Computed example of a mutant assay.
Amino acid sequence: MRIDIITCLPKLLESPFNDSILKRAQNKGLVEVVVHDLRDYSEDKHKKVDDYAFGGGAGMVLMIEPIAKCIRELKDQRVYDEIIYMSPDGENFSQGIANELSLKKNILILCGHYKGVDERVRENFITREISIGDYVLSGGELAAAVVSDAIIRLLPGVLGDETSALSDSFQDGLVAPPVYTRPAEFEGLKVPDVLLSGHQKKIEDWRFEQSVKRTQLRRPTDSK
């Protein structure tokens, strides 16, 4: 898989992709993440990529010209399965969408900033708009990192235990059950006896019951 990310603030994406699982995935050659600085595609001598909105109003808007130039150059090099714009009013990101995108080969993500992007970009270059929640961030960079992380960890070979991602919260529509580790007792706080029983069927039944209870408590709408 290859993920290209277009941003006017590339330094914001340095840390997420240079540590832990995402870094190891790239080192193994399981995914390639390439960050493109939108300012490199500006025709302005000061590398300006934003301007005031027609009609007035507070805030700046990313201009169509550098974005169009960048996307067109990238599309000349490969075919993208999805060109995603990170937007507060896009479809809400979910585990199901992460699963779907993890099966793609080439993904291009555009990070909005300021007051967003010229609407003509959304209408003519974007194939999908995704939001990580109903709130506003300073830009789409952190959201792009979240989406990328959720996708990459699903790729075969990325996690040490191939079944780990399959047991994550929301993979079966339920949140994950409680988990415990050593010591079995800490200051009078004990691990449930069933987890120490060695009886795998009883353990799995207990975990399922806990997942159902926790989902009903924390995601009541989803569990109806």
Rank of each mutant, 00 (worst) to 15 (best):
M1P: 06
D4T: 04
I5F: 06
T7K: 13
T7V: 01
L9S: 08
L9N: 09
S15G: 07
D19F: 10
K23D: 10
Q26C: 06
G29C: 07
V31H: 09
E32Q: 14
D37E: 07
R39W: 09
R39L: 03
D51V: 00
D51T: 01
A53G: 06
M63L: 12
M63D: 11
E65R: 00
I67M: 12
K69N: 13
K69F: 04
I71E: 14
L74I: 00
K75I: 00
D76V: 01
D76L: 08
Q77D: 12
V79M: 04
Y80V: 01
Y80I: 01
Y85S: 13
M86H: 08
P88D: 10
D89W: 04
E91V: 08
N92E: 08
Q95W: 05
E100H: 15
L101N: 11
K104T: 10
K105P: 01
L108A: 12
L108T: 07
C111Q: 09
C111P: 05
G112C: 07
H113G: 15
G116Q: 11
D118E: 02
R120W: 01
R128E: 08
E129M: 13
I130K: 11
I130R: 13
I132G: 11
I132A: 09
D134C: 02
D134A: 13
V136A: 15
G139A: 11
E141P: 06
L142A: 12
D149I: 01
A150K: 02
I151L: 02
L154N: 14
L155H: 09
P156V: 05
V158L: 00
E162P: 04
E162H: 13
T163Q: 13
S164M: 03
S169R: 06
S169Y: 04
F170T: 03
D172C: 01
D172W: 05
G173D: 04
G173N: 06
P177A: 13
V179F: 14
R182H: 10
F186K: 07
K190Q: 07
P192L: 05
D193E: 15
V194W: 11
L195A: 07
L195R: 10
H199Y: 10
K201F: 00
I203Q: 08
I203T: 08
E204Y: 12
E209N: 15
R218D: 03
D222C: 02
